[in-house]
Design a protein around this nucleic acid. Sequence first.
DNA 1: ACTAATCCTATCGGAATAGTAGATTATTGT
DNA 2: ACAATAATCTACTATTCCGATAGGATTAGT
Lengths: 135, 135
Amino acid sequence: MLSKKTKYGLKALTFIARKTDNKPVPIAMIAKNENISQKFLESILLTLRKSGFLGSKKGKGGGYYLLKDPKDIKMSSVMRILEGPIAMVSCVSLNFYEKCDDCPDENACSVYKLMIEIRDSNLKIYNNKSLSDLI
Amino acid sequence: MLSKKTKYGLKALTFIARKTDNKPVPIAMIAKNENISQKFLESILLTLRKSGFLGSKKGKGGGYYLLKDPKDIKMSSVMRILEGPIAMVSCVSLNFYEKCDDCPDENACSVYKLMIEIRDSNLKIYNNKSLSDLI
DNA sequence: ACTAATCCTATCGGAATAGTAGATTATTGT
DNA sequence: ACAATAATCTACTATTCCGATAGGATTAGT
């Protein structure tokens, strides 16, 4: 299941991206329009900023703005930051690989191949979708 | 992330399916061979039985056995029982639909379409894979 | 009777989620 | 200078879920 963190994060990003003028968008505005708890959204936008997707400006007229063109913000990178690994098991994860402790041999594991297939198909979608596609 | 419940469940099912003789397989045997906590596995096999995938026999010489041909056990149905909805958000789930409380209009939701696409691609895989493919 | 096995109910610690509170810092307009 | 605005930071809380465990009850074979 997609965490609310990710869901809200994606919604916030598209909200910002929709604004054609490149003026900073305050948290409160996003929270109100998208029905998100403002305080919760704060922390999400913070991680989004720290990961290089967003810039911020304090004070009056401040807020968050995109650092890149929506076309250049791939879903795969956003998902990895907000949701974590795209793979469903860490032993098939490209960016977060970790060996399963119950599995002596990955190639003999029946779940392994299935999960590889799932990962590949999801990755294909996330890699070919950018923020501009969500607008 | 795939829960251990699902992972263990799938491993157990394939373990049972691999045995060509149709004799009941005791929990302890599966647990030992697949490095799974026996008590935990107990509860998993129980739900698998209650969902109609497995039959059981008590007492000496007892254990679990498949009720259907591995070819007829679709991954989608197993996943739904063990892991829950295949969709990543309930508002795009076919079998577990639930409206999002923050979303006034699904068709206007930017996340919605993306998640539909993910669901479809995963569903396609799970529907076309059966237990026999895991062996 | 004894043993091997499933079945059932209850519980538990830890981690993760989702959200809250309050104080602080930086910027802008007046 | 000052007040308003808005991000930032730290800390805390409530709830839920996960993985696992405990102990007994039940059933079946020898």
